[in-house]
Design a protein around this nucleic acid. Sequence first.
DNA 1: TTCTAATATTAGAAAACTCTAATAGAACGA
DNA 2: TCGTTCTATTAGAGTTTTCTAATATTAGAA
Lengths: 112, 112
Amino acid sequence: MSQTRKPPANAEDIFALIGKSQNIEEAASALQAMAHPIRIKVLCLLSSGEMAVQDINEAIGTTQSNISQHLRVLRASGLIESRKEGTRALYFVSDARILKLVAMTRDVFCTL
Amino acid sequence: MSQTRKPPANAEDIFALIGKSQNIEEAASALQAMAHPIRIKVLCLLSSGEMAVQDINEAIGTTQSNISQHLRVLRASGLIESRKEGTRALYFVSDARILKLVAMTRDVFCTL
DNA sequence: TTCTAATATTAGAAAACTCTAATAGAACGA
DNA sequence: TCGTTCTATTAGAGTTTTCTAATATTAGAA
């Protein structure tokens, strides 16, 4: 056992810190979805409000197909949602928790 | 252009929100390093202070090799550090920003 | 309907990730 | 030294991710 601090409690006690095992899986999924430069940029853009795919695409600058695929990843993991308006698709962050997490990521990596 | 809000500024302006492109890469790397159930658990454990590999291993419960490899990923990305004490290796989170990010992740995924 | 603009989907190759199993290395005690 | 404990590394297979290129779909305009 480690002598540098009190011995660890059992796994349940410890992971109660973050929640059930299910929460951990969920957190891992969400972080995984965030963990790509393009997707972080998208989340940043959408932090200010909804945007059409075309505008996201212009702001970030890659293939339309590529953006579309990244948007799908974000939506599949529940980080963003979308609605249709005519021929355009508008994406947005609906969950305040996600907005918080994005803001926090910004804090952490810009406030060295 | 989107008509639902004012047109997007250029990419530089927008990404000033999160920082330079380099920061985005850095953030993506860190999130990627966090984005695994085992590694989230490790970060949770280490949030309370340093721990030896063996103790981490017992708390999480997988192969010693597997834990070691995950620890390496976390260390390679700068999320944790380690020191030696005799035959044991003690791992810890040295950066307060990371502690904040882990705490935040906990907040977000446990406070539905 | 036909054309066009906006978005989504598919396919496939290359790269990265993650596990298991085996082995290596380092520090300590007998 | 020899054996043991703790940790790290390597190798390899299986899976997942990510890109490009091509194609499909959808809605509106002409």
